[in-house]
Design a binder for these strands. Structure first.
Length: 496
DNA sequence: TTAGAGTTGGCCCC
DNA sequence: GGGGCCAACTCTAA
């Protein structure tokens, strides 16, 4: 006879959910709960697209739980306080939740677990957000992997991850709780501005996630020939990649479901592309970055982060604001930032372009500032992946060919010479002829006037002269690399 | 100690 | 669209 709480945070699914399965075993009453933590329910930290995706996901979870005779209870407040109260009022004997390796979650969960165990409550917290337990991955390599290739070698030792677990067939009855007070709120009830009535582009929930995965996997040729660098960043209807990031972030879809879904198509197809560019490799990149985020102190900062090169970035709030508000005067960059603001999603290579532009390429602002903007706006915001990619693009870690700079004009032109993408996401440039679409300041004034895109009135001139700052920044980066090497030499001299 | 490899640049030339 | 050049870093295996 055990009163049990299954505490959903990520892992918003019934399939491949070991915490849920453990909670269902011999429970007399089961409370499936989600706690709206004020830390996250904050428009300055979690943008409205991601919050909408979360609410979608909670609704889907509730519907699925109800089919099994249960339901979801949505509670509000600081999680530890909420749980401590419920442990008492519900006479809880067991607490189950999926393990979360991000710093905020680790701190929160260790305090909750310590309190619960002190009260004699069983705590069950299996790993299911990643393919493997990161402790096992690190142990198998002897230390955290330094490169993706080294990581792949470790994975070879570990073999395939377990196949995903089935969803439970039935669930214990839900515990008693005032049903009216614990429904799923609307965005407005959470204090978000809802005057913007655009429909979200990314539909949350396990049901939508599985449909999206299955639709993608149904095209065997596309799966088998997938090569990430060859996908088109300017494609938007539909995008050229799976766009399953949001579902993986919230765990509407498990990493193992994705992994084995792709593997099964590979078996049918015979030949297929290989890491690092293949579709399967994408879930392995996620795993690699999760492992490093788990193993590395201060992973989301430059200072105190042993993986991040120490670079003397400028601090120019006007540059940062212009970049984040799509006012750099470079249509490709501004259209991308507009897509980020309105939809909360960007193609991977588009993220590269705007990240390179903000950091080492053009504006020379710290990657941490770009990371913060992405953290707020991305529907698929993921702590480990976001920090990793910002370090990558700013040449702070992983990537060292700093003289390779994305051109804010040349890059997009290569994929989209007509400018379909920028016309869609940046209407102010929509009527410009294609020869000026990526460089509107070069259009004669008569053309600017007739197309309603007068520079300085309708749209800003370029915030920096790319060719000039690029050369200067490559030199600054060369000096930063040199300084880092010298620090390394003096350190090893001191240490003998 | 050294050679080779590393997810995804731009530009010029053919 | 494919190849070489630009100017050149870091990690790993041998």
């Amino acid at each position: 006879m055990t009163h049990t709480i299954i505490w959903f945070r990520k892992g918003l699914r019934l399939c491949d959910n070991p915490a849920l399965l453990a909670a269902a075993v011999r429970a007399t009453q089961l409370w499936p709960i989600f706690i709206l933590d004020p830390w996250f329910v904050n428009p300055a930290r979690v943008g409205h697209n991601r919050m909408l995706f979360l609410l979608d996901s909670l609704r889907d979870l509730d519907v699925q739980l109800r089919r099994l005779g249960s339901r979801l209870f949505v509670l509000r407040g600081q999680p530890q306080e909420v749980l401590e109260e419920r442990f008492d009022t519900w006479q809880i004997g067991r607490l189950c939740f999926e393990r979360d390796t991000e710093p905020y979650a680790r701190d929160r969960d260790s305090r909750v677990s310590a309190y619960a165990q002190g009260r004699g409550i069983d705590v069950i917290s299996p790993t299911a957000h990643t393919l493997f337990d990161p402790d096992l991955t690190i142990a198998a390599g002897g230390h955290a992997p330094a490169t993706y290739s080294a990581f792949l070698r470790v994975l070879k030792k570990l073999g395939d991850p377990a196949r995903p677990l089935d969803a439970p067939r039935d669930l214990p009855p839900p515990g008693e709780c005032d049903p009216e007070a614990h429904g799923i709120p609307t965005l407005g009830e959470l204090g978000y501005d809802v005057t913007d009535d655009r429909q979200p582009v990314h539909q949350g929930g396990e049901t939508a996630g599985r449909e999206r995965l299955n639709a993608y996997l149904s095209n065997q040729g596309r799966v088998a020939s997938f090569a990430k660098p060859a996908t088109d960043p300017t494609a938007f209807d539909p995008p050229s990649t799976t766009a399953l990031g949001p579902h993986l972030k919230f765990g509407c879809l498990s990493a193992r479901t994705f992994y084995h879904g792709v593997q099964d198509v590979y078996k049918e197809a015979g030949t297929h592309t290989e890491p690092p560019v293949s579709l399967l490799a994408q879930i392995l990149w996620r795993e690699f970055f999760y492992t490093l985020g788990y193993a590395t102190p201060n992973y989301d900062r430059m200072e105190g982060n042993p993986l991040s090169r120490q670079i003397p970035w400028d601090d120019n709030p006007e540059y940062l604001t212009a970049w984040s508000e799509a006012r750099t005067g470079y249509p490709w960059i501004d259209a991308a930032m507009s897509q980020l603001a309105t939809e909360g999603w960007l193609h991977h290579l588009t993220r590269h372009c705007v990240a390179c532009f903000l950091t080492r390429g053009d504006l020379w602002q710290s990657w941490e500032k770009g990371q913060a903007v992405f953290d707020r706006l991305l529907v698929d915001q993921d702590w480990s992946l976001n920090a990793s990619n910002w370090m990558w693009l700013s040449a702070s870690a992983f990537f060292h060919a700093y003289h390779r700079v994305y051109g804010p004009v040349s890059f997009a032109k290569k994929y989209d010479p007509e400018g379909r993408f920028v016309r869609h996401y940046l209407p102010v440039v929509a009527r410009l002829p294609k020869e000026f679409i990526y460089e509107p300041w070069k259009a004669p004034l008569s053309v600017q006037r007739s197309t309603g895109c007068v520079i300085g009135r309708d749209y800003p001139g370029p915030i920096v002269e790319h060719e000039k700052v690029k050369t200067h920044n490559i030199e600054r980066m060369r000096l930063a690399f040199e300084a880092a090497r010298n620090t390394e030499v003096s350190r090893s001299t001191v240490l003998g």
